[in-house]
């Protein structure tokens, strides 16, 4: 009979409509005001409304989320070198960056003029950065990481969209906060590397003396 298909389809629409309320009644305000409610709303079992009322609430982004990178530095209260940048100005990130938006002026020793492992200047043109994450992936020193702060709007792009070293620098604790598991994994890997280096050094010494 003509129209049966249409009514069947309307049935689906009505189900969707009713489900919105069923879920809301089941959870009450908890659905919108608690993390459990949020998780239920944003999981494969959800049936009701799934929207997020941004910016009153935001979905926390996963650890691997990538947005314009930042440079990792020591803590401001580091006993040895407070705020020191981890970057060695090796230039790998500048070479691997697909749209070539990283600009680095390698640091120089003011007396000898020899390169030192600390960038004099470091810029990222965020208009051009495509958030690919290669710089963080290939940096051998864990010195550049992808940020999670995606709210970068500004009133003036010509002056505000080239981030310099100061603007880019963030302490390591920030990275530990936004990506706890990854930061921990990287710390272990670094320790491992250090330990391996120390062992090699010791062995070489022993060989020499023998």
């Amino acid at each position: 009979m003509y129209g049966v298909g249409i009514f069947k389809g309307l049935g689906v629409t009505i189900r969707h409509f009713v489900n919105t309320y069923v879920d809301d009644l089941k959870w009450g305000v908890k659905r919108y005001q608690t993390d459990e409610g949020f998780e239920a709303r944003q999981s494969p079992d959800t049936t009701g409304i799934v929207t997020i009322s941004y910016p009153e609430e935001r979905m926390a982004v996963p650890e691997r989320f990538r947005f314009v990178p930042f440079l990792v530095t020591n803590e401001p209260d580091d006993p040895e070198e407070p705020n020191a940048s981890w970057c060695t100005s090796c230039g790998i990130c500048a070479k691997v960056c697909p749209p070539q938006c990283i600009w680095i002026v390698r640091g120089e020793d003011p007396e000898t003029g020899r390169p030192i492992p600390d960038p004099a200047e470091f810029y990222i043109d965020i208009d051009i950065c495509m958030n690919c994450g290669y710089c963080a992936e290939f940096c051998p020193f864990d010195a550049i990481k992808m940020d999670h702060n995606y709210e970068l709007s500004s009133y003036d792009r010509t002056t505000a969209h080239i981030h310099d070293k100061e603007r880019l620098s963030k302490p390591i604790s920030y990275w530990q906060k936004i990506a706890p598991t990854r930061a921990e994994e990287e710390r272990l890997a670094r320790e491992h590397k250090e330990a391996a280096k120390a062992i090699k050094k010791a062995m070489r010494k022993r060989k020499k003396s023998a």
Binding site: S89, G91, A94, K95, V96, C97, Q100, I102, W103, I104, V105, R106, P115, E121, Y123, D125, D127, I128, T158, I162
Partner: peptide
């Protein structure tokens, strides 16, 4: 990679 980016990467807007 472009030579202008490192080691003397004095930035200019594209």
């Amino acid at each position: 990679p472009f030579d202008s980016r490192w080691p003397g990467g004095h930035v200019i807007r594209a």
